[in-house]
Write a protein that binds this DNA or RNA. Structure first.
Lengths: 124, 124
DNA sequence: CTGGATCCGATTTGATACTG
DNA sequence: CAGTATCAAATCGGATCCAG
């Protein structure tokens, strides 16, 4: 069994190492949004409705630290910050996509019902 | 944004759905061990040295509930229980393998050092 | 040998208030 | 608009004990 240290943390296998970087509820959804476009903080917040402010900022920080996205601050007021996916992030998208497709497959298999949005009351 | 209920829990996207079933520190390593062989509880425990009793049993239960493995009890004393991967589990292995390879790639990229095992003191 | 139950500390997350 | 700080709630994980 491989076993190694990285940034002071002990990992037992490559899966754990990868999941420590991409896992959790929000990192992959965030990366997915940045897949093919630059986005501002507020745009991400709108497109991922249930994420809290705290989680969005903390997950963006971690993704940045690990080199999956870059953060660009424009020195204007009010502040403007753009997030862009990096080459490493693009590589991760391949995995996210595989997991996403697998999730869809699994949902079909177990018969998950998509929530119907009432016609005249769409999510804001 | 899709959004759906399954077993009383709310999910926001397919990635989250998949990760809820395969995520966590131990589920993929367990599945990985069962990839091509039937194993008893004690064998799994030995091959995944750092997992605790509690985590191994709880993760095996969840994998079973979600249909990734089957549990076969032999009515003997002392008890003998075998765990086998299912077709659904085999399908998941494809994903585990993708993540595993990605993890290895990432480790190389960031320069993770594998722990060298001293020649005469191998892990038991 | 396998596994359930309990206790308890550590870690994660959410809500809220405050800032330039 | 974007971000930080703080506190409380919830979840997770490890250690331990008991049981068939």
């Amino acid at each position: 069994m491989p076993e190694f240290l990285y940034n002071g943390k002990l990992y037992y296998n490559p899966v754990e190492f990868a999941m420590d970087r991409l896992g959790g509820t929000w990192k992959m959804p965030i990366l997915w949004r940045l897949k093919d476009k630059v986005m501002r903080y507020g745009e991400l917040k709108k497109e991922i409705p249930h994420i809290t402010h705290k989680m969005l900022t903390s997950q963006l920080r971690e993704l940045e630290e690990e080199g999956f996205i870059t953060r660009r601050v424009y020195p204007v007021v009010p502040p403007k910050v753009e997030y862009t996916i990096t080459r490493r992030g693009q590589r991760a998208i391949v995995i996210v996509e595989a997991i996403r497709n697998y999730g869809l497959e699994l949902m079909k298999e177990v018969g998950v019902e998509r929530q119907k949005q009432p016609k005249s009351r769409r999510e804001k």
